[in-house]
């Protein structure tokens, strides 16, 4: 299974080495990693999407918490958090296919950032599900180049009134 880890760390040089080194040496699989500053200049948030058995994911959380510079580790649940990723993709689109590609982009709320005679480059952001199906849709035309930021995420604040999240 896959899990999103939101890791708050001290904003020091070398912290990323400690975190990524941990994944490497314990043989944990990373699907994506994204890091950036937070509202507090002394802290950085690293979001890692990892996959493995349930026990492995638990181990990851425990091992991360043992790192000196790790302040907080959250294992985000899908329906209790917001996740986003930015995708840039250059898609083959000759004149006859261009309209179709633009329609797909439109349907996904993607922006067009460049057009040439036979390609379209677009940017799209969204959650895991959205980016996956967008890429799938574009693959039919041929993606010649793609860059992704990796997922970033935040947990939802707890609701104050009684509310059961859907399963």
């Amino acid at each position: 299974m896959r899990q999103v880890f939101s890791i708050l760390v001290n904003n020091h040089a070398g912290v990323l080495s400690h975190v990524s080194g941990l994944f490497a040496r314990r043989g944990y699989n990373i699907e994506s990693i994204a890091a950036g500053p937070t509202e507090n200049p002394e802290a950085t948030r690293i979001v890692i999407v990892a996959f493995g058995e349930e026990e492995t994911l638990e181990q990851i959380a425990h091992q991360l918490r043992k790192l000196y510079d790790v302040l907080e580790v959250e294992q985000l649940q899908y329906n209790r958090s917001v996740t986003r990723e930015l995708v840039l993709a250059t898609v083959s689109a000759d004149a006859d296919k261009r309209t179709e590609v633009l329609q797909i982009a439109n349907a996904f709320g993607a922006n067009i950032v460049n057009i040439t005679d036979n390609t379209v480059t677009l940017e799209a952001s969204g959650n895991d599900h959205k980016t996956r199906i967008l890429i799938k849709a574009l693959e039919r035309y041929g993606i010649s180049n793609m860059a992704r930021t990796g997922m970033i995420a935040l947990p939802f604040d707890e609701m104050t009134d009684e509310w059961e999240p859907l399963a």
């Binding site: 991360l64 918490r65 043992k66 000196y68 510079d69 790790v70 302040l71 907080e72």
Partner: peptide, 8 residues
């Protein structure tokens, strides 16, 4: 630094 885990 306030670390997350009771290792400390």
């Amino acid at each position: 630094a306030l670390s997350a885990e009771p290792v400390f």
